[in-house]
């Protein structure tokens, strides 16, 4: 090849590589915007509320005296509501996802259902609050309880669970599925022995990310009528006498972390703002912990199934 051509190629490569660099810088900047915002949030809340973070803060009920107030009822409420949400959304969503992906006949009715599911994800959360008020609180008479709240958030993340389940199952190569059927497996055997186990990592990840977004939801719960000031805990789920387990807590009034924050923020005294920041810090910690769990799960399951 003549030397001149080589020169030309080099120039061409150099020119194209300039765009590489430009994009790398733009990408880096965009990423920094996200990362910096998160960092700033954490630091800001840490500075504002860090002073309030103590053991007492976690074990005290809210109070009219800012320095004595804590988040006991709020974090217990959040934990219990999330428990109900998970217990309702996971089986419903996973089963619906499996049905749509594996069992549903391909026809207009299925298409209609699919469109509905997709739209479900786009419904504003406050609308779920209205639905919950009408359906769970009044129609089914669950009251403004942990059960109603958990079910409301479950409905909210149901679409996400269905979609991640379908996508996880769809991600399994047809060859694996055919391998199972070719051995004479039934549909259900194929689902339970292959499709579900191999996609579990991705399904769980999606569910946890859905839950992490639900944990901070305030609007639907306030619409539904959650209380903003609760100075007691729901009844314990375990009892000393027969039948040892109690589900009374499901029907107890409650508050959750973001509502507690909302309550504090709306007070005029600066000391309550400090509390709100501290609670925000804790809530953020909860969300990040859930995301970390999701990452860990994905990592664990990836080591198992990889094709």
């Amino acid at each position: 090849m003549p030397a001149q051509d080589v020169q030309e190629i080099r120039q061409l490569v150099a020119r194209r590589k300039r765009w590489d660099k430009v994009f790398a810088i733009l990408g880096l900047l965009s990423m920094m915007v996200g990362v910096m915002t998160l960092l700033a949030l954490i630091i800001d809340m840490g500075i504002d509320g860090g002073g309030r973070l103590s053991w007492d803060f976690f074990t005290s009920y809210p109070s009219r005296h800012a320095e004595r107030a804590g988040i006991l009822s709020a974090w217990v409420g959040t934990a219990l509501v999330m428990l109900v949400t998970a217990a309702a959304a996971i089986p419903l969503g996973v089963m619906a996802g499996i049905y749509l992906e594996e069992y549903a006949p391909r026809n207009w009715l299925t298409n209609l259902m699919e469109i509905n599911v997709t739209n479900l994800a786009a419904v504003p959360s406050i609308v779920y609050g209205l639905l919950a008020l009408g359906l769970f609180v009044y129609q089914l008479d669950f009251g403004q309880s942990i059960l109603s709240a958990g079910l409301t958030l479950a409905l909210m993340i149901l679409a996400v669970v269905i979609v991640v389940t379908r996508e996880a199952i769809r991600g399994i190569p047809a060859a694996i599925r055919e391998g199972s059927y070719a051995l004479g497996a039934t549909k259900w055997q194929t689902v339970k022995d292959h499709l579900l186990p191999y996609s579990m990592g991705r399904i769980l990840t999606g569910i946890i990310i859905g839950m992490a977004s639900a944990i901070g939801e305030t609007a639907p719960l306030i619409t539904m009528g959650a209380l903003t000031f609760i100075a007691f805990l729901p009844p314990a789920p375990v009892e000393s006498g027969f039948p040892y387990l109690s589900f009374d807590w499901l029907f107890a009034p409650f508050t959750v972390m973001p509502i507690q924050m909302f309550n504090w923020v709306s007070r005029p005294q600066a000391a309550f703002l400090e509390n709100a920041a501290a609670a925000g810090f804790v809530l953020l910690g909860m969300t990040l912990a859930m995301n970390a769990l999701a990452i860990w799960l994905r990592f664990r399951f990836r080591k198992r199934g990889n094709w």
Partner: peptide, 12 residues
């Protein structure tokens, strides 16, 4: 009737 596919497809 058993079948063996073109690409090996062992289950994970």
């Amino acid at each position: 009737i058993g079948m063996v596919f073109q690409k090996p497809n062992p289950f994970p």
